[in-house]
């Protein structure tokens, strides 16, 4: 398997951002009551991750090489402002896309999955293409986790669960089962 495919697959399944690395848990528990919303949020996430990955590569390559101590500060500022600019551009150029991504675009800027992506990419020293593969994989992985969770919770609304178990506790137990299932992918690399 080629290097890029491997990075993408690893971020998508084996080291799924939400279910194995616990990143992006706020949307995972917050906006997974409908599958459609979850998918839209996932799409917006892939989008922001690609932007993040590109800008982080640029920062690391050309600006932060001599000042690694400015990493955290500059990442968060650059990512937040860049997403704002892109949001304005999309609003102007493609109102349809803007409506599809909706309010999620600004919301996910400070999502830990985005920042986690930037930090992981830096720590692993990915180049531009590896970073992009990583971003797409991580974004799709997040989308997958969100969609899975949302489709389970849609069914759960109709289920008869004890009143004390309704809500967050039950969602966590379901997440635990999902994470357990995703652990099965860990053998993917060995085989």
């Amino acid at each position: 398997m080629s290097d890029l495919t491997w990075i993408l697959l690893s971020a998508l399944l084996i080291n799924n951002f939400t279910l194995t690395l616990f990143l992006g848990l706020c949307p995972f528990f917050g906006v997974t009551s409908k599958t459609e919303t979850a998918l839209r949020l996932g799409t917006a996430n892939v989008f922001v991750m690609v932007i993040t990955s590109t800008s982080v590569w640029f920062l690391n390559r050309f600006i932060l090489a001599n000042a690694p101590y400015l990493r955290i500060i500059s990442f968060i500022i650059v990512i937040a402002s860049l997403v704002q600019i892109v949001e304005m551009a999309i609003k102007k150029l493609s109102p349809t896309l803007f409506r599809a991504l909706g309010i999620y675009l600004p919301l996910i800027t400070t999502n830990c999955a985005i920042f986690g992506l930037a930090i992981f990419q830096t720590n692993r020293g990915y180049d531009l293409w590896q970073g992009l593969a990583f971003a797409v994989g991580a974004g799709l992985g997040l989308t997958l986790a969100l969609a899975l969770m949302a489709s389970i919770r849609e069914r759960l609304d109709l289920a008869d669960v004890p009143s004390a178990a309704q809500g967050f506790g039950l969602s966590l137990i379901i997440a635990s089962c999902l994470a357990l299932a995703f652990m099965g992918f860990a053998g993917l690399g060995a085989g």
Binding site: G169, S171, C177
Partner: peptide
Amino acid sequence: LPPGGFLTLGV
């Protein structure tokens, strides 16, 4: 491992 984290907080 990760599932244990979800499970413990869930409980």
